[in-house]
Nucleic acid binder design. Structure first.
Lengths: 150, 150
DNA sequence: AGGATTTACTTCAGTGGCTGAACTGTTTTC
DNA sequence: GAAAACAGTTCAGCCACTGAAGTAAATCCT
């Protein structure tokens, strides 16, 4: 992504976007690698991470930004592996909540630990740089979040 | 991605990684949206962007991190649409180079313009914050790059 | 020089993530 | 209490992508 050239009035902004794209791609690769390391696919890993607390399937679908039918498939596979189970939602008998089994919790912890442990990028920054980066990212958060929604 | 909690000795680093994941997901969505806006799929858009200068197909495959056979398919589609053509590599008659047609160039420019123009994140930062962010990202670049390679 | 190996792309069959439509059962609405 | 909206499931099908087998050209090795 470092080889993009285009006539554009804001070279600094462009360079930032390019860097962020590079970061995005690196993190994506890191996530995928970590997931396969622990024996999960990317959507399985995303789902597992989201299930810190029991969630209704529709809520998971909204979080993953995919169709509910896809969540059915993901939940099927994770349930077959014994990482979660379906539980009827006490407040709505149409809905089901996904909740992690003990093995699922363990796997989730392992996954997250590896994810943060070997994360690229932050390891070269010193304490001051890191808090600077953090505050900049916090500032930018609102827009990023606003842009994420469909 | 804001709802991850795990017992981890480095909460600041964790928060940075979480933010970067959020940024990564936002940018990915932004890229996908922009690509479909101009009538391209994600891999088509990536390929088009990479073709600022004519590239051999193997080189494109390496850049996209996919199998050469997939590049054949992508090139087929883009050639059918008239955005690029195959040209025999003058230095190796086994190889073919992909090069953009005029329409392909135009589309690439439009794509990149939209990509930077509507990029999330940077728009809320002022000039000082932006150069800070840029220098931090430059510092972190080496590691990110190192982690990207297989 | 020339036969064996490697390399660049293509073709094709198959996998896996994901969507959209049709269906069941439950809740809400008026 | 019937009609509409909703949660999840099933199924057919799309698209990105891989891996193996095939063709043609370059390189390697005496």
């Amino acid at each position: 992504m470092a080889d993009i050239r285009i006539d554009w009035p804001d070279p600094e902004g462009q360079e930032i976007v390019e860097f962020l794209f590079a970061v995005a791609m690196a993190l994506r690769a890191h996530f995928e690698e970590t997931a396969t390391d622990v024996g999960l696919t990317v959507p399985q890993a995303h789902t597992l991470i989201h299930l810190q607390e029991p969630q209704r399937m529709g809520e998971v679908a909204a979080h993953l930004r995919c169709e509910p039918s896809h969540v059915t498939a993901i939940a099927d596979s994770l349930e077959r592996c014994g990482f979660l189970r379906r539980e009827p939602d006490p407040e709505d008998r149409r809905a089901k909540r996904l909740l992690l089994t003990h093995r699922g919790q363990q796997l989730r912890d392992r996954l997250l630990a590896r994810l943060f442990e070997r994360a690229p990028i932050i390891s070269v920054l010193d304490a001051g740089q890191r808090s600077e980066l953090l505050s900049l990212l916090r500032t930018a958060q609102s827009v990023a979040g606003a842009d994420t929604r469909r």
